[in-house]
Nucleic acid binder design. Structure first.
Lengths: 335, 335
DNA sequence: TTGTACGCGTTATCAG
DNA sequence: CTGATAACGCGTACAA
């Protein structure tokens, strides 16, 4: 086989030019110790000269590994997913794998894309909120290790998440016990995502523990846009509530801003809390009381676990839950 | 429970089970129209039954395309990179390509990783701020199309960026003309990144146009941590300055918070401006005056351009510059 | 309409 | 220490 006319040098081009076989070129790159120094230097010189880089696809085919993980997220707004990706990428990189990101928002053929992705990676991480059919998940699981995040609906599949119920209970309890709140509202749609469901469960638990009756949740997505609607709903309601537990910070910030704009005293008249501890939470006035999740660490741990799974595919599915941390600022009533 | 066996079905398994040749299986998947309906259905049934997904590596090898682009970023903090990635992923997906993300922060072998990545993708996007040697860039460029972002140092390589000089000049001018500021300071290290350099250039230009002498920049990275240092520096300085133009919002928010905490009136005594328009900018008090960049659109346009480059590799390098928008809030002195 | 056979670029085994 | 060669799984001329 002679040099192909293609512009990209192959292992054959290098071998030819260095006067060795392709086996030697491969060895020089993978196990330099097994090659005589003089030969090695000659080959490396040619590699450098030609700018040779092994083709990843061919390599993957030969070693039977894509050296890549798939990470499927709904979107990338807010710090949560970005931090997750950051942590995951680090953990994956430590194992020599790169990360292929698939964002599902705005795509109408998610199932197809996920299936296709399954053919290019060694393992796949699925955010619980991504709109993918159980059939597709099953098909992918049959091919490679799958880890699901922030969704523990199915116990059969291994999952990671941050603690929600107890944190939400602790937060709600704080509002009730420390700040004497009695008519709290929860903002967010529990049926929307598993973590919201758990946060509401904690909200309910705190009420029951205090002998109070929890109110029905005020439906809202994770978008800031819902803030105004919720805020005016609270105001029109004659402000029957004296505290608002929001499913995330975007919602909380937006609601709080509207309340303040309407002349409502926060936290004097009403407490507001969020979830996530975004950057804005510590810059607004009053500072937003919220819950901080170790998202970056979560991402890294997920990656590490994925690497372990790739080594030994027969370990039983585990359910991992990482602890969160309550961040008390001023919006709840704390000094 | 379905388990991943590690031995995935291949095109041969499907062909065998369906009683056809692999060519037919391949055709059914790629050009269904060329196959008789009955045969097609039989094959598809087996595909479904076995959960067959074509191996991406083998496919790439055969079609000579990785169907993937590389995106190399320093990190993922703040909304900039996340938005960029979001836009790019969308644009790439429209062309059927996935995105492999490489984060360089904290890695000490960036050049190696970038070279390796070059073997797994069809094109590569490099953020100007990533610490990669010119030699590596040259080597990668020899293999595949490379697009550089927010760095126009080398005209030979095609680049994308958002407008900096004129926007910074306009912003500075606003502080001078509208708010009567005379002793402005620029916070950020021009030598750190190309876009910071350009923003400082605009800062200088506005001064010259107004017959003022621009002060030397106050060195600072993009990190929030530098805020306190800069703020106390300004205060200790007897607050010789009546305005601070920061290289980005993180810096501005941090500086502003410290100034306010020290009892300094913002914007009464001193104006503060940022760059990027992060979420916190519209929630703080006073609202942060800043510059908004169409980052998402930028990402998408870069992806579209990359796809064009992949079609026709012989177009001359272009320098693309997207317009930005000045966002006036209260921290500059506006009502 | 369907099947055969070869090429894609690398790794790894086994002789030499 | 080095070389020849067989996989790896898929797409596709070319034949039938």
């Amino acid at each position: 086989m002679v040099e192909s006319t293609g512009r990209r040098p192959t292992i054959y081009s290098v071998a030819d030019r260095a006067g060795v076989s392709i086996a030697t070129v491969s060895r020089v790159l993978r196990r330099p110790g097994e090659v005589r120094a003089s030969t090695r230097d000659r080959v490396l010189a040619v590699v450098e000269e030609l700018g040779y880089v092994p083709d990843g696809a061919a390599r993957s085919l030969a070693v039977k590994s894509h050296e890549a993980h798939g990470l499927v997220l709904p979107e990338l707004r807010g710090p949560y997913y970005a931090d997750l990706l950051t942590g995951y990428e680090q953990g994956a990189a430590e194992g020599g794998a790169s990360v292929v990101v698939l964002l599902t928002h705005g795509k109408d053929d998610v199932d197809l894309l996920v299936r296709r992705l399954a053919g290019r990676v060694d393992g796949m991480v699925l955010m619980g909120a991504v709109p993918v059919s159980t059939g597709t998940v099953a098909a992918v699981r049959a091919k490679l290790p799958v880890l699901v995040l922030a969704d523990r609906h199915q116990v059969s599949v291994e999952s990671f998440s941050t603690e929600n119920v107890r944190s939400a209970e602790q937060l709600t309890r704080h509002l009730i016990d420390v700040h004497g709140r009695r008519t709290l509202r929860f903002v967010g749609s529990p049926e929307f995502a598993d973590d919201v469901r758990e946060r509401y469960a904690g909200f309910v638990a705190a009420h029951e523990a205090a002998g109070l009756v929890p109110a029905e949740p005020v439906p809202a997505t994770f978008r800031e846009d819902d803030g105004p609607r919720v805020a005016s709903l609270l105001v029109e309601d004659g402000l029957g509530a004296d505290g608002v537990v929001c499913a995330n910070d975007e919602l909380a910030l937006s609601v709080m801003q509207r309340l303040l704009a309407a002349g409502v005293d926060v936290p004097g008249r009403i407490s507001v809390t969020g979830w996530d501890d975004v950057m804005a939470a510590r810059y607004v006035t009053p500072g937003l009381t919220t819950v901080s999740q170790p998202v970056r660490e979560l991402g890294r741990e997920v990656a590490v676990r994925m690497r372990a799974l790739l080594e030994d595919r027969h370990s039983a599915p585990e359910q991992h839950v990482l602890p969160t941390r309550l961040v008390l600022r001023q919006s709840c009533g704390c000094a």
